[in-house]
Design a protein around this nucleic acid. Structure first.
Lengths: 148, 148
DNA sequence: GTGATTTGGTCTAGTAGGTTGACTGTCTAT
DNA sequence: ATAGACAGTCAACCTACTAGACCAAATCAC
């Protein structure tokens, strides 16, 4: 089933991408889709993104870099804690978010039409539960389980 | 929501991977998970895999290569059509498949426990429908929609 | 049949989106 | 005051793809 999820993801990705290019925002890289919506939903720095996305801080750092140079996000140093940078959506960033959300909604509606709103939200919740139980520990290379 | 799917996928991946390494099959690369189960379910050559997985034939070719050298799959040239190679699971391959399936089942059971078998299978079907509508046209680079 | 086209697959080169490890500067507890 | 945790960056590398050119075998068009 994991690959079924991948295929569905692919579908979402294509839908979003084509809407974005229509709107002249084709230079937004895919992980940006989630990063921007996470920012729109209240995440306000890299650590938040890292938790939300389930990737390493390095990956986030790099991603934010490209988002900044592409003009979707602005980095502003946090006054209270000078290690942090607050991340703010630019106008372009907000535009992207709204396009993404509407594109997602289209596919979502299709699913809802097929299984009903109740079932859909149930499902979504279940998935969220499973997702959150993956401790955001991205390990790829040899597991080193045992012998620390 | 796409990234929710990614997270769930991550969960599956971790579960499978840890079971595989327990069984001494840690050298199976992730896309192999799906490829092997697809083979077990009746796909018998690279073209089938390509359709099933939604990636280019080049990707499949490379993947099969590594699966062969790692001893999960055997390539045997098809007598009736000598362009094709039939792909057969080795014993090792079959062992991997059974481990993967059982690992998947564990997560699946958890989802079922949460939403019920009926809802689950409904959901799965809906996802399959969406997935199959993504024409397995892996386009990444500029869309060239219009002007063929 | 014989040529043109399609199909199955490989080779090569390049890219996106990550990973790990080492490091710097800032904050926090003791 | 200082030891350690924490936010983030820099650099090197890796996986899983994509694109495009190519080849040989099969199929079609006549």
């Amino acid at each position: 089933m994991p690959w079924l999820l991948r295929r569905v993801n692919q579908h979402y990705r294509n839908a979003i991408r084509s809407k974005l290019t229509e709107g002249g925002l084709g230079d937004l890289p895919q992980p940006g889709y989630w990063a921007l919506t996470a920012l729109a939903k209240g995440a306000h720095d890299a650590s938040h993104l890292m938790i939300e996305m389930g990737v390493t801080k390095q990956a986030v750092s790099k991603l934010v870099d490209t988002l900044v140079t592409a003009g979707f996000v602005e980095r502003r140093s946090n006054q209270a804690d000078r290690r942090r940078s607050d991340l703010l959506l630019t106008t372009r960033g907000r535009k992207a978010v709204s396009i993404i959300e509407s594109a997602v909604k289209i596919t979502e509606r299709r699913l809802i039409a097929e299984v009903g709103a109740r079932t859909f939200s149930q499902l979504r919740q279940a998935l969220e539960e499973v997702a959150s139980s993956t401790t955001n520990a991205p390990h790829h290379r040899d597991d080193t389980r045992g012998i620390p």
